[in-house]
Computed example of a mutant assay.
Amino acid sequence: MSRPTVVIHVGLPKTGTTYLQDRLWRNRDTALRVGGLLYPGVEMSDHFHAAVHLQPERYLDWVDPAHADAWGRMVAQMRAWPGTSLVSHELFSTATSDQVRSVLADLDFADVHVVATVRDLARQLPSVWQENVKNQHTSSLDEFIGSLRHDPVDEQEPFWEFQDFVRILRTWGDGLPAERVHLVTVPPSGSGPAASLWDRFTSVLGVDGADLDVPVPPSNAALTPAQVELLRRLNTHLQPDTVAWDRYEWAVKRHLIGDILFDSVDRHGRTLTADQSRWAAERSEAMIAAVADAGFDIVGDTGDLRVAPTTDTGATGEPTPEETLEVATAALARILATMPMPAHRRGARSRLGAVVRGGRRRAAALALRRRAR
């Protein structure tokens, strides 16, 4: 009798993981019925809770005792399913060797596969930096990349903890056959007929992605360079010692970013300078070589992960002060034009309008009487 299969998707963050998870969850009934794929949990956030409860010291702020049994319930569901099951969350990428062994021990009834989705550093560095700025960070892109180059273990910037796919796959793949450790590359933008990330990922799961056709609305859209610069400057006034996180999340992330800034159709992001791209190219080549030496299964093309060194044209997309000011002015105007009026002011406005309209009517009547004379 064949053993069940459990696939653990460990990230990486900013590699299309939200899209993959959302589409799989929306199609999970079809995936189970047609493809024999179980996406366990009562709700999709169970995978998040499983990841943080695995690492309680690291994610103490997110550990919720009400969800402490999420992993146990998911394991019970997977143990009862004879086919393939999927566990997916980016926070699994930071698990230690001991924590990984604990997970694998819980899944000793199955053949475990590990998969990481990976994107080239030329896109990943600006994307992660922008996501940081959306979460109260104040570093410029140059400062962010400079910290990674000169202090790769900087505790204030855990980029490599989430993005060093060589270390992550080695940690999760320790004790597993190399063919059960999968690296799925994210195709370059505008790559034409090349297989999509969705097709590549679902091929690892053994399902036909075309069958899972419930659409997913766009989410987590990128900001323009000028919008990011506006937000970065705002963050210097909105640090944790001056504004609580719940207020920042509501006022900045949900309203300013979600309702106001995402309206722009211009989505051309920042790019690396020539010097930064040369460094990223060297770092990428070393990581690609290490993965090849490990013999992991490559789904896609390692060429997707290469960074082409660029000549220094100076055109990195860094916004001018005037562009940032224009974005700030437009955002402020939109906020003022759409912010709700207090109920008592709405009444006052109506009374004032009536007074004005009444005055106009009286003036018009007086003018008519004068002309009649």
Rank of each mutant, 00 (worst) to 15 (best):
L332T: 09
Y248V: 11
A178R: 15
W250T: 08
I168G: 02
A354F: 13
Q124I: 05
G206S: 08
A244E: 15
G35C: 06
H268W: 01
V216P: 08
A367E: 13
R23C: 01
G317L: 03
V299I: 14
V6N: 13
L60P: 00
R283V: 10
I335W: 03
R351Y: 09
L121G: 06
V75N: 09
G300Y: 07
R254P: 00
P321S: 04
A343I: 13
V63Q: 07
A280C: 03
A226T: 02
G358E: 02
G300T: 05
R33G: 08
L37I: 08
R349P: 00
T138K: 00
T30L: 09
R373Q: 13
P319N: 12
V10Q: 05
L305P: 04
L148G: 08
P321E: 03
R283E: 12
R28L: 01
A122Y: 01
A50D: 08
L305F: 02
L107N: 08
E229M: 01
A210T: 14
P319I: 06
D46C: 08
E318N: 12
R79K: 15
A315W: 00
N135P: 02
R232A: 00
A333D: 15
W245L: 12
F162M: 04
E229A: 12
T236C: 06
R306Y: 02
L230V: 01
S284H: 06
P13Y: 06
T302W: 02
R345N: 03
P4Q: 08
V184C: 10
A292H: 04
H47L: 03
A222F: 01
A333E: 14
G258F: 05
R360D: 05
G36N: 10
D46A: 10
R101E: 13
Q55M: 10
R345Q: 14
Q77S: 13
H344Y: 10
W279A: 03
K253W: 02
T271Q: 12
R270M: 14
V118P: 12
A365C: 01
S2C: 07
V75P: 11
D61Y: 10
L305A: 01
T138M: 00
V118Y: 11
V34M: 11
D199K: 14
M287G: 03
V265C: 00
T117Y: 09
S102C: 14
L37A: 09
